[in-house]
Design a protein around this nucleic acid. Structure first.
Length: 204
DNA sequence: ATCAAGATTACCT
DNA sequence: GGTAATCTTGATA
């Protein structure tokens, strides 16, 4: 998909709706990052929802801190955090002011700027088949491929640096629901959503 | 000041 | 299947 022009940037009112509605509708949308002339883009294929009110796994469950404060804004901001001493993960803030809800982007399917993603991840242009499918199949991998770091914390997604493009809503039948990955609290909430049979899903 | 945990990944058997 | 790497954050003193 070379030409992204036909697709319109998602506006504020997409993000300010409630967490689970936004989480499911984010599937199929296109994540875009502009680095000067270079355009990086990928279709969102896997997400997880986090809600500080009731969900012990959410970073906002403990209340407001310096790290999570952007999650208490209204929807439409980018929440980036660092974890395990190695990886950044990025989230889309949702809902109204003070909700403390966000959607973790767990995997995307590369569309544009794939060579730059290959350089960011592997420091080379030619990838094996295995490496191609490993490019963006996890939350830390997405941030490494897109070079998303703490510098991008709090970015307004209605701006021109990082934003999402609209695409038709997926059929309910194309969406798989499961428990979330890699958490130790509130483990039974069915708040992971991914596109059925997509090769870039982080795990079965 | 010190400490434990972590929304992960890559590499091992 | 298992686990080491690595460092920021938030809590406790």
């Amino acid at each position: 998909m070379k030409n992204l022009h036909p697709f319109k940037k998602l506006s504020k009112n997409f993000y300010t709706r409630s967490l689970l509605v936004v989480a499911k509708e984010l599937l199929g949308k296109i994540l875009v990052k502009k680095e000067g002339r270079i355009l990086l883009a990928g279709e969102i294929v896997e997400v997880e929802a986090y809600d500080g009110l009731t969900d012990e796994a959410a970073h906002t469950f403990i209340g407001r801190t310096k790290r999570n404060e952007i999650m208490f804004n209204e929807g439409g901001y980018f929440y980036v955090y660092f974890t395990y001493g190695a990886h950044f993960c990025c989230n889309i803030v949702t809902g109204k002011k003070d909700h403390g809800t966000a959607v973790l982007i767990r995997a995307v399917e590369p569309l544009t700027g794939i060579e730059k993603m290959a350089l960011n991840r592997y420091n080379k242009l030619i990838l094996t088949e295995k490496e191609k499918h490993n490019l963006t199949s996890g939350p830390g991998k997405v941030c490494e491929a897109f070079n998303i770091t703490k510098e991008h914390y709090g970015i307004d997604l209605t701006g021109d640096q990082i934003f999402l493009l609209d695409r038709p809503k997926l059929k309910k039948n194309d969406i798989e629901v499961s428990k979330r990955v890699g958490i130790k609290k509130s483990i039974d909430l069915p708040w992971r959503f991914y596109i059925k049979n997509n090769p870039y899903i982080s795990r079965k």
